[in-house]
Design a binder for these strands. Structure first.
Lengths: 183, 183
DNA sequence: TATTCTGTTCAAAAAAACTTGAACAGAATG
DNA sequence: CATTCTGTTCAAGTTTTTTTGAACAGAATA
């Protein structure tokens, strides 16, 4: 099959400095939000390249294992941070990076935050139930206050997410902050 | 000194179910935002108690090591998530939880996000510099586009933070979203 | 159907993060 | 000054997370 130069083994690409630096940006960002290094590397790799990349090209450019590439691409797909790109006549999967900040953030929030927020309703209710077992009345009252604080926090967090997404929205919107009406 | 019941060794408190559940809430939350379990436990412990707690009381209630308590309190102080509470006639430090969601979030953002955002300006500039070494003109142009994308993202993130804090602000404010003016 | 091509899986290895507890430092007390 | 009290430090141990790569599965090809 073709020249032996096309062999799979060791075609590790040497990246130019600007690509290394750009990928580093994403590695920092993913680490900041608690995602593994390899995910930042893979997204960064796609971000730097003008063309869609394949599994193999990503592995070669980054010099990481097949397992990491496979898992990383899976997570990025789930987050909506990359988009499969169909190339006629090729059996390989090609990927392009999602470039809309709004969609990136939305995917992340949907995956990581929304499930927690949703399930927290039940957990707070269950706290309320177990609160009935507290014999010390004063303490029970205090615990109830704190439970209400948690509910307020939860409600605010829920309301915050749409606001964040709107602020990042591709359609440039303006926000005005109005002082609360006196009632 | 006093009855031997007051001995330091093994005074591990048994927590009521509602406290365990409430602390669990904070453990989940801290883990969600990438802080260690012990930090969630300590804050949760303070959150549940009506009185300020000391180092020792926290350790006893949670059954964790002195090192973890010391480190955890340090981080929480740095985040502004707990407040030292002076008690006359005691040599110990007492702590109360910060209960303002806005201040909690602000402290977290200041500690974790703002430094990254600030330093990113320099890093993006340095990418621009190293970009000059790219011989392929088309690729250089593409890289420059992407660099501008990164700058836009950074700018948006920077503008987002005040918005988030305002939305959580104790002074209830209302936001209105206006469609962008057509220019 | 055998072979090659693509990508996934998962047990084991490696790395990173967290916790522990003994030693330490400084301040208050006697 | 010696002792006790309070809390910090940090090396070592533990746990968790991430990465690796060999084995595998399925689809296309010959």
């Amino acid at each position: 099959m073709g020249s032996r130069e096309s062999s799979k083994e060791f075609s590790v690409t040497e990246l130019p400095a600007w690509q290394v630096a750009m990928i580093d940006t994403f590695v920092r960002a993913t680490s900041l939000i608690g995602l593994p290094r390899s995910i930042g590397e893979i997204y960064g790799c796609l971000f730097c390249n003008p063309n869609p990349l394949t599994f193999d090209e990503i592995q070669d450019q980054l010099g990481i294992s097949r397992g990491s590439v496979s898992g990383g691409l899976k997570t990025l797909r789930q987050l909506g941070a990359i988009k499969p790109h169909y190339v006629p006549g090729s059996r390989k999967d090609y990927y392009l990076p999602e470039l809309s900040m709004e969609r990136l953030v939305r995917g992340f929030i949907k995956d990581k935050f929304t499930p927690h927020l949703d399930s927290s309703v039940d957990r707070l209710e269950s706290i309320e139930v177990s609160l009935a077992d507290e014999p010390d009345l004063t303490l029970r009252q205090h615990a109830n206050d704190r439970l209400n604080t948690l509910r307020t926090w939860r409600r605010r967090a829920e309301k915050l997410l749409p606001l964040v997404l709107a602020a990042l929205g591709g359609t440039k919107q303006l926000f005005s902050i109005k002082e609360k009406s006196p009632n």
